[in-house]
């Protein structure tokens, strides 16, 4: 292993050390729970995006899927607006919506041959647009005790949502390490022509990866709706930015072929711990977006293998 691939872990440990020296409260159990709560949604989103970025593509539709998922969920479970009360069926429906949007992303990318950043830029706004049309500019309060329980009820001191995120992590690790799809995703990122020549159905892998990513974003939408207690069209604001920051800061390369779900865990923790530390030190949240922007540039600049890339668009 090169030292560079451990750099994110070292950064994370250093960050924790510095913050706990400045404010010992950082290491308290209460703060750990707080960190896990702010990490659960970025983690689920980051996991989904990792698969896409390993393929060498990008997914900008994170906020679109998340918002649509949160809004659809809020309208199907017990809520303050209509008489629906579908409970777990609503959750299933939301996951299908996420998979559907992801599937469409993949289909447009593969069949119409539209680059992923343009495809997903389109579906990002289409998703938010549909959410807005469904709501008509309002917000829907969620009264379902199970959904609210994800954020409120605890198990071993941590909210259920954190356990859901960890379950997603486990599933993603299995997909990445123990399935053909996982290996093919790496193969596509490493060199698509070669992958195609070795008999991998590139189109099928791409569509599958986008679909899976869509499901993870939908889970993110469910957790976001649970945390906020309602579905509205602004629920996704800023999520794309945090997601991409986490993935690239974790060391997954934008040029594809390199990275892993576990590296994204480290990336998410770096982003969340840093913002937690800034809150403890009294830095306003609005500054954090700018810091994340600079982190993206630094992380990408450090991770890109320039020898392989002659032309950067």
């Amino acid at each position: 292993m090169r030292i560079a691939s451990w750099a994110p872990v070292i950064v994370l440990l250093l960050l924790c050390a510095i913050i706990s020296v400045i404010n010992p409260n950082f290491l308290s159990f209460g703060n750990m729970v707080r960190i896990s709560q702010s990490a659960m949604i970025p983690l689920v989103l980051g996991i989904g995006a990792t698969f896409i970025i390993i393929m060498g593509s990008i997914d900008l539709s994170v906020e679109g899927v998340l918002t649509l998922a949160a809004v659809v969920l809020s309208m199907l479970v017990l809520n303050g607006e209509n008489a629906n009360d579908y409970g777990l069926f609503a959750v299933a429906a939301v996951l299908i919506v996420g998979a559907g949007v992801g599937f469409i992303n993949g289909l447009i990318n593969v069949r119409l041959k539209v680059p992923s950043f343009m495809t997903t830029l389109g579906t990002w706004f289409i998703g938010v647009g549909i959410a807005n049309a469904l709501l008509g500019g309002m917000a829907t309060r969620i009264n379902d005790p199970w959904i609210r329980g994800l954020a409120i009820e605890r198990f071993w001191g941590f909210p259920w949502g954190v356990w859901v995120a960890l379950l997603c992590l486990l599933i993603a690790l299995i997909i990445q390490n123990y399935t053909r799809l996982g290996r093919h995703v790496y193969a596509l990122g490493g060199g698509e022509e070669l992958a195609a020549l070795s008999g991998i159905s590139v189109a099928r892998v791409r569509i599958a990866a986008f679909t899976i990513a869509g499901v993870f974003y939908a889970v993110g939408g469910i957790l976001a709706a649970a945390q906020l207690g309602l579905g509205n069209a602004q629920i996704g604001n800023g999520r794309l930015f945090t997601t991409i920051t986490a993935v690239v800061v974790g060391g997954t390369s934008l040029s594809g072929g390199q990275g892993s779900v576990l590296q994204t865990v480290v990336g998410v923790l770096i982003v969340v711990v840093l913002s937690n530390g800034m809150v403890l030190m009294g830095v306003p949240p609005s500054v954090q977006i700018g810091v994340q922007g600079l982190m993206i540039i630094a992380a990408v600049a450090l991770s890109i293998n320039r020898k392989l890339m002659k032309i950067i668009k």
Binding site: I58, F117, F241, G293, V300, A301, M309, I312
Partner: peptide, 13 residues
């Protein structure tokens, strides 16, 4: 050598 969509996304932030 950062791809333009990511450089400008970051600059936007």
């Amino acid at each position: 050598k950062i791809p333009s969509f990511i450089a400008t996304l970051a600059m936007g932030g």
